[in-house]
Design a protein around this nucleic acid. Structure first.
Lengths: 210, 210
DNA sequence: GTCTATACGCTGATAGAC
DNA sequence: GTCTATCAGCGTATAGAC
């Protein structure tokens, strides 16, 4: 059942084999380029089973999405419950995301790239789903406690996590060749320099183009 | 011919009507969910013309991609040729990207979300294509001239543009309701606070989790 | 519960008239 | 150069045997 956790204990045969096969195929070829037959073949089950369990291709994608979203949320919640400062929580989330990108590449890719609108017509986009809101809330707490400069919560959250997320994109696209974990210190350092309340008032700026 | 430029002068009837229709359909429904018949209907041309001009659906997607990529590259090159500091160049690119996201939403969405691997099997991913490399080079010049803190060029580039790109994603997903231009000052300010060479040595850090 | 075989619609692509 | 009519193949989904 556990995809994100390191110690996957060999999941229930049927459902999970289907989900795992679908995940890999979706990421490698794209949702619409994969047929139910492809999944069926890869998972060593029959088409009937797939329709019995998930009701079709969209059903698989939905189940996969919610399952992974849930695990992601648990991860963020775990970090939230630890006794850490807001900054340490942000850092930990970034570290975990980097780590997962290396060890569970396809999962991160699916959650980051999949156009969920395609199979979840009227579901909130991933950016406004629970775990991302939790991340924004961590940032909000940091603002309230004075650890992080104040401002629009989404802007601050985008500034905190934007660099790291961009690094993940570059890594998934093959632009960056080395494991992300090597860049963790530098990314986090760059980011916090701009997020300290002390730095907020701004000196020497106000010369921006445009 | 000009999609990115503000003053689109009513393009050549045929080719551009097809490309425009395809762009909107691709963005709204996804590449694979759109049939050639859909494009044909929307563009008010016949299937024959489409196959004559573009050779099929993939041909349309490719033409669209290269066309827009080219315009994007021109935009970056224009900024590069202006007499500005590296920082001002970065700011101007961010300002232009924000502006285009508001005025030419589908174009930005297509370039940002489209999985180009699907129709460009062995083409470099967008992140390593010419305009993005040009952006990284601007950052590199800033590092060389001492305007920007030193470090791995991709990390620094990700830190410079990551927050802004994240804001674009949030805006395209409908999470952010107000025009991006309203957030420009704050985004740029946050970012440069972390990018100044003076700030690089690092004080009070080295407490990162993980 | 699991499988196989089959039906039906849609999509990409072409041939040939105008 | 542009269009219409048509085809062949694939992909989803189902019905029914085991």
């Amino acid at each position: 059942m556990s995809y994100l956790k390191k110690d996957t204990p060999i999941p229930e045969p049927m459902d999970c084999r289907i989900l795992t096969a679908a995940l890999n195929l979706f990421v490698e070829h794209g949702f619409h380029s994969v047929s139910v037959h492809d999944v069926q073949k890869d998972a060593n089950v029959s088409i009937g089973s797939i329709y019995k369990h998930f009701g079709g291709k969209e059903g698989i994608a939905k189940a996969l999405y919610y399952h992974l979203l849930n695990e992601f949320e648990e991860m963020v919640n775990d970090v939230t419950e630890e006794d850490l400062t807001s900054r340490e929580r942000c850092n930990k989330i970034i570290a975990l995301l980097f780590s997962y990108t290396e060890s569970r590449r396809n999962i991160v890719s699916y959650m980051l790239y999949a156009k969920h609108r395609e199979f979840l017509p009227d579901e909130p986009p991933i950016c406004s789903s629970a775990p991302f809101i939790a991340m924004r809330n961590i940032v909000q707490q940091g603002i309230d406690s004075g650890e992080i400069r104040s401002g629009d919560p989404w802007v601050i959250a985008a500034s905190v996590f934007g660099g790291a997320i961009r690094m993940i994109h570059l890594r998934l696209d093959g632009v960056i060749k080395e494991p992300l974990t090597e860049f963790y210190d530098e990314v986090v350092d760059c980011m916090w320099q701009g997020m300290t309340p002390a730095a907020a008032p701004g000196r020497e700026k106000r010369r921006a183009a445009r």
